[in-house]
Design a protein around this nucleic acid. Structure first.
Lengths: 324, 324
DNA sequence: GTAAGTGCAAACGGTTTGCATAAAG
DNA sequence: CTTTATGCAAACCGTTTGCACTTAC
C-alpha cells in the first residue's frame, strides 16, 4: 500500500513546494485519509475519518486540503446529485462516468469508448473545445428493484485490478473470436497450403489465448472479490464480427484456390484491424496504469501482426513495400 | 402564442384541480412567465420577470410555483453547473442534453439517438432500471475561442421549428442517398427491365425529394433565423452507406441478369431499412410535437415501401406471404 | 522572523420552512 | 368558513471567508 501511494504523495508534496506552501501534519492526515479510501468522499466523510486520528483537526482544514488535492491533480470533484461535492481519485485513474442508484446510493463506474467517441464527435460538430464532461445515469439498481436490501456493497472507485480484468476479458474475446475464425477458415479451405496456414495461425491464436486465460484465472484467484466487481470497460461487440467474419460469411472469403499466401493476407488484415482497435481504444484513456496495461496488450497484438508480416515477406521472398 | 400555450395551461390547471390546490393570480403569472420564455430560467430570473408585472409577488411564491410546474410535468429541473437550479420546458419538448460554454455560459441543446441507445445498453448491462440521466459537456464555444465577444446569442431551448428542420434534413439525406443509389443501380443494370425498374424508383425518389426540399426551403424562408440555429438532431451517417450501398459496392449487388423483380427486391430491402431506421429513431423521443413530425415522415417511408411491395405482388401475380 | 496554516466563528448563496395574514372555493 | 396560498422572515445546509493565533521553514 505504501509503495502504491508513494507517487501520489510525491505529487502532493511537490505541488506544495512549488507553490511555497507548508507541509503540515494536518495536510498529510487528509492526504492519507483520501488515499486510503478508494471511494467518493465528501468533505464531511473525510473530516469524520480524519478526526478519528486527530481530534483537533478542523473541518475547514479538511475542506481546504481537499481543494489542494484537486489543484495538484490527485483528486477530482464529482457531483453525484446529492447536493454535496464528492472527491474521487483522479491521478492514474481512468476517466469514467457514474451510474447511481437513487434508492441505495450505490454507484457503478464505467467507461465506454464508444460513448466517449460519440460525445467527441458531437462537440467537434459544434466547434466547441471540450474541457470536461459529466455523464450520470440515475436509476434503480438490480438489488433495490428486487428489494434485496441486504447487499450493502461499498461503492468504490474502480481500481487497477478491475481495469486489468476487463482489459483481459476484451483481449480474450478478440482471441476467442479470432480462433473460431481461423479454425472455421481452415475447415473451409480446400487448398492444402491455405488450410495449413490457417490452422497454423489458429494454433498460435490458441497458444496466446491459453496464456491469457491463465493470466486471467491467476488474477481472479489472487483477488477473491474481483469476479463480483461490475464490468468497467465496455466496447461494442459488433466490431468482432467486422474483424473476424462469422461462420456464414466465411464461404464468401474463401474458395477452392485460397492458398497459403492468401490465407496469410486474410489473417494479416484481421490482426491489423485488431491491433488498430486496441490502439484506438487505448488512446481514449488518460495516462494511467490502466492505459499502460492496455498498451502492453496492444504491443502483443502488434508483435503477432509483425510476425505474420515477416512470414509473408519470407514466402514472397521480398521485403516488398507493398506487403499487406 | 395563446393557442400554443393553451394545452400547457390546461395541464397546470388540471393538476391544481386534481390536487385540491387553488388557482391564483400569482400562479398564473409565474406560469405565463415560464411559458413565454423558451430558455433555462432560474428562480431568480423568473422572480425578476414576474415582478415587472406584479410588484408584490414574492420570491417564495415563484419558487413554489416552479416546483409545481415540475410536479405537473410542464418543467424539468436542470443543473448547468453554476450552482443554481434552472427550469426548462419539459412538456412536449424532446429529451436532450446540454453543451455549455464555460466562458459565455451559452448552452446548446442536442439529441443523439446513438448516444441514447449506447447509454441504454450500458445501464441494461448492469441491471439498472433507468430513471433519468444527465449529460453535460463543458467547453469553450467557437465564438469564445476566437474572442468574438460580440455574438451574445440568447440560449434558448430548442423549439419545434428546429426539430422540424433537422428531421427534414435527415430525411433529405436519406432520399438523396437513395436517389444516388437507384440512379447508379440503373446505370449499372444491363438487363433492360431491371434498369427500367431502378430508374422508375429513382424518379419516385426524385419527386419525393423535390417535395421535401420545397418544404425545407419554405420553412427556412418563413423563419429567417432558423438557418443559424445549431443542429439539434444527430445520427450516425454510416447508416446511409449500410442501407444504400455506395457506388463501388453496386457491381457486387447487380449483374447482367438483374431483372425488374430483383431490382424491386433490392429497393424493397433498402426502403424497409430506411423505414425501420426512422421508426427506431422516433421511438427514442418522448411524446412531443417533434415526435409527431418524425412519425409523419416515417409514415411517408412506409407508404413508399408498401407501394413497392404492391408492385412486387402485382408482378409476381400472387399475394404471397413470402413477398420480401 | 516571516510567510503560510489552522481552527473557530461567522458570512454566503441558493433553497426551504414556519407562520401570521390573505385569498380561494 | 374551511382550506389553501401568500409573502415575510428566519432556518437550513453545504460552502467559503475573515481573523486571531499557531506552526513551518
Amino acid at each position: 500500500m505504501l509503495t502504491k501511494t508513494k507517487r501520489e504523495k510525491e505529487v502532493f508534496f511537490d505541488y506544495l513546494k512549488e507553490h511555497g506552501l507548508n507541509r503540515t501534519a494536518q495536510k498529510e492526515l487528509v492526504l492519507d485519509t483520501f488515499l486510503k479510501t478508494e471511494g467518493h468522499l465528501s468533505v464531511e466523510d473525510t473530516y469524520q475519518q480524519a478526526k478519528q486520528k486527530d481530534l483537533s483537526i478542523g473541518y475547514v482544514t479538511v475542506y481546504r486540503t481537499l481543494k489542494s488535492l484537486v489543484a495538484c491533480g490527485l483528486a477530482r470533484e464529482v457531483d453525484l446529485g446529492d447536493g454535496r461535492t464528492r472527491f474521487e481519485h483522479f491521478y492514474n485513474h481512468p476517466h469514467h462516468h457514474h451510474i447511481i442508484c437513487t434508492t441505495c446510493k450505490k454507484t457503478i463506474e464505467f467507461l465506454s469508448t464508444d460513448l466517449e467517441q460519440l460525445q467527441e464527435e458531437i462537440i467537434r460538430y459544434y466547434g466547441f473545445e471540450p474541457l470536461y464532461h459529466s455523464f450520470q445515469i440515475y436509476g434503480t439498481c438490480n438489488d433495490c428493484q428486487h428489494k434485496r436490501t441486504g447487499s450493502v456493497r461499498r461503492t468504490e472507485t474502480v481500481n487497477d485490478k478491475v481495469f486489468l480484468r476487463d482489459a483481459l476479458r476484451i483481449v480474450i474475446d478478440f482471441e476467442n473470436k479470432g480462433l473460431d475464425f481461423y479454425r472455421a477458415a481452415a475447415e473451409h479451405t480446400k487448398n492444402a497450403s491455405g488450410r495449413l496456414m490457417f490452422s497454423k495461425i489458429a494454433d498460435e491464436e490458441k497458444d496466446h489465448l491459453a496464456v491469457l486465460k491463465i493470466k486471467y484465472e491467476k488474477l481472479l484467484s489472487r483477488n477473491k472479490t474481483l469476479a463480483q466487481e461490475p464490468q468497467f470497460l465496455h466496447f461494442n461487440p459488433a466490431i468482432l464480427d467486422e474483424i473476424f467474419p462469422p461462420g456464414e460469411a466465411i464461404p464468401k472469403l474463401i474458395n477452392e484456390d485460397t492458398n497459403e499466401l492468401q490465407a496469410l493476407t486474410i489473417a494479416i488484415d484481421s490482426e491489423r484491424d485488431s491491433y488498430e482497435f486496441f490502439q484506438r481504444y487505448a488512446e481514449r484513456f488518460k495516462d494511467s496504469k490502466g492505459k499502460r496495461i492496455f498498451v502492453s496488450f496492444t504491443q502483443a497484438e502488434k508483435q503477432h501482426l509483425t510476425s505474420l508480416q515477416r512470414e509473408y515477406e519470407r514466402l514472397t521472398g521480398q521485403r516488398s513495400a507493398k506487403a499487406p
